[in-house]
Design a binder for these strands. Structure first.
Lengths: 189, 189, 189, 189
DNA sequence: AATGAATGAGTGTTCATTCAT
DNA sequence: TATGAATGAACACTCATTCAT
C-alpha cells in the first residue's frame, strides 16, 4: 500500500463523506470532483479509475481496523472496545461507511474484502474471551461465540444508532455504560 | 396500503432479490424488467415510477416487521425473538435487504422511514424488558437500554452473519443458543 | 447472420458513409446518430454497442464479397472481374471502406476478419488461372501467383483511384480496358 | 522542411510505429508520450500540436518517396521498382502506414497531400514506360495507363501482403519474381 | 397489459492542450 | 527540457421515463 499524496487523501476523504451522507449511488465522479473543486478529468491524474478509488477506500478501512493488542483477558476486551470507540469518534463518516456491510455488494471482490475487514476481529476477540475464561474472570457456562455476538453485536448496534443520530450523543460514554453492564453480567461472582 | 396485484407482488419480490444479491446500484428498471421477463415500459403499467417501487418495498418491510404480542416479560422477549427468526428464515432476501440500514440513504424520506421500521421494535422490547424486571425475572441492576442493545444487537449480528454466509447455517438453532446464553446471564439467580 | 431491421440497415449504411467520407475516427455514436436523426441513446435499441455495429459492417462486407461462380478459365476470370466492378459501382462507399485494409486495425479480431474477406478471393482466382492454363488459354511460363497479383493488384489500384476521384470516371469502362490489355498480354499466341 | 532534432525524429518514428501497429485511432498524445518515455506535456516542447506531428509524418513520407532517376526505359522501370523494395524493407512500418491510403482521411488538407505523395510516381513511371515503348522494348499494343496499373498495382498488392504478413516473407525476392514475370509478358518478342 | 422506439440527462473515461514550476 | 496538475470537450454507454401502437 503506497503512500498517498495529499490530493489522494483528499479524494478518498471526500468520497467517504459522500458515501456516508448520500450513499454509494451518489458517489459519482462528477459529485466527487465537485466536492473537491476540480473538474472530473482532474481526478484521473490521481486515481486511474473509480474502482481504484474504491480500492483505496478499502485500503483505508483495513488500516483503520488494525488494532494493537493492549491487554489480555477481560482487560483486553475492555481496552479493545474503548480503543475502537475512540477511533470511531475521530472518524465518524468513515465509521458510518464501514458499518454498511452491503456497500460494495455489487463488486464481488471488494465485497469479500469488506467482509473480511468488518469481521476481522472475531478471532482476536474470541481469544480474549477465552483468556478471560481461563483467568476465571468470565464464567465458562456461557459459550464464547455467544459472548462474542453479545459484545460485538451490542457495540455495532450502539455505533449504528450513533451514526444515524448524526453522531449527536456521546458514543464513548454510552459505550462505557454498555460495557459496564455487560461486564457485570458476564464476570464470575 | 392498497392490495397488490400478482404482477406488483412479483415486481417487488424480484426487486428485493436484486438488491439482496447485487446491491441497490443494480436495481435498475432494465434489470428489473429483465428479471421479470417483460420490457421496461411494461413495468410502468404496474408502478408509476421506480420511486413508487421503492415505497412499495418499504411498505412490505413495514408489514413484515409488524409483530403480534405473544407473551409478556421474559417469555415475551423469547417469543418475540423466535418469531423474528422464523420470519427471517422464510424471507431470507428480504431480511438481507432490511438489515442494510444504508440502502435508501440517498432518499431522505425513504431513509427516515427505513430507520423507523428497523428500530421500531425498541419501545416494544424495552417494555418487555421492564416487565421482566417487574416480574423479578431480570435483575434491576442492569439498565434496560443496555439489555436492549445486547439482545437486539447480538440478534442483528447473528442475522447479518447468516445473510452473508448465504443463509447456510441454521439460524433458528443458533438463535436459540444465543438466547439461552443471554437468558442465563440476565435472569435473576 | 440474422436479418436486419430497416433501422439497422440504415445505421450501417450511414456508418459506412461516415467511414468512407470522414474516416473511422469520425465514426462516433454522436455523428452516427446525428446522421440518422435520432439521439445517441436511440442507437442502442438497434445495436448493443459500437463494436456490434462494426461487426455488422463486416458481416455486410462478407455478404458483399460472396461470389457466384459464373464461368471457368479465362472467361471465368473476366466475369469475376466484371461482376466485381458492377458491385463496386452499385456500392461506392462500401467499396471505398472495403479497400481500406487498415480500417479495423485497432481491433485484432475484426482486423483479421477484414483481411480474410479482402483476400478471400485469392484461392478462387488462382483456381481460375490454373484452369485457363490447363485450357491452354494462358501460357504456363508465367507463375500463377504473379498473374494473381497483376490481375487483382491492378484492379485494386484502379478501384482505389476511382474512389479517391470521387467515383467520377467510368469504372466499368476503365476496368474493361484494363482487362483487355492484360488479357492480350497473358493469352497464348 | 526544417531539420529535425533527435527528439523530433524519435517522436515521428514512434508515431509511425503506433499507427502501423495499432491504427491512427491509437495515435494519441498519451500513447505517444508513453512510447517515448516522457510526459504528455513534454511532447509540446518538440511539436506544437498533434496536427504538426502529422504534418511532419507527411513530410517524411514525401522525403521517403523521392526517387533518383537511375535509368531509362525498361531498365529504368526495373531499377525504380527494386529501389522501392529496398526502401520498403528498410522502413517496414513507415511503408505500412504509407500504403494506408485512408489514414489521414479526416483532414482534407493532409489527405490531399497524402494522395499526391502516394500517386506521385505516376507521371514518372508513365514516362519510363513510354521510353520503353520508343526503345521497342515494350509492345505499343498495350496502353501505358494499363501497364502502369499492372506494374504499380501488383507491386502495391505484394507490399500490402508483406505488411499484413508481419514482413515475414522476402519482399525483394518476391518482387523480383513478380517483375520478371511481368517483364516476360510485356517485352516485345 | 404489453411492446418498440425514442429521449434528455447522466455515467465513467479519454482527448488534446495549457500553464506554473 | 521536462513535469504535475489542470481543463473543456468529446467519448461510448446507461439511466428513468414517455408515447404511439
Amino acid at each position: 500500500m503506497a503512500e498517498l499524496t495529499e490530493r489522494q487523501k483528499e479524494i478518498i476523504e471526500k468520497a467517504i463523506k459522500i458515501i456516508a451522507n448520500d450513499g454509494i449511488q451518489n458517489l459519482t465522479i462528477k459529485n466527487l470532483s465537485k466536492a473537491i473543486g476540480v473538474t472530473e478529468a482532474a481526478l484521473y491524474r490521481h486515481y486511474e479509475s473509480k474502482h481504484s478509488i474504491m480500492i483505496a477506500i478499502l485500503d483505508l478501512f483495513e488500516e483503520f481496523s488494525r488494532t494493537a493488542k493492549t491487554g489480555s483477558g477481560l482487560k483486553g476486551i475492555e481496552s479493545f472496545l474503548m480503543e475502537r470507540y475512540d477511533k470511531f469518534i475521530k472518524n465518524p463518516e468513515l465509521t458510518k461507511v464501514m458499518f454498511s456491510e452491503a456497500i460494495f455488494i455489487n463488486d464481488k471482490e471488494l465485497s469479500k474484502r469488506m467482509r473480511l475487514i468488518i469481521h476481522g476481529h472475531r478471532k482476536e476477540l474470541e481469544l480474549l474471551i477465552d483468556e478471560a475464561k481461563s483467568d476465571n474472570d468470565i464464567s465458562n457456562s456461557i459459550e464464547t461465540i455467544s459472548l462474542f455476538r453479545m459484545i460485538i453485536g451490542s457495540m455495532r448496534l450502539l455505533v449504528i444508532q450513533w451514526c444515524f443520530n448524526n453522531y449527536e450523543f456521546d458514543l464513548k460514554k454510552e459505550g462505557k455504560i454498555l460495557w459496564n453492564n455487560i461486564n457485570n453480567l458476564i464476570k464470575t461472582r
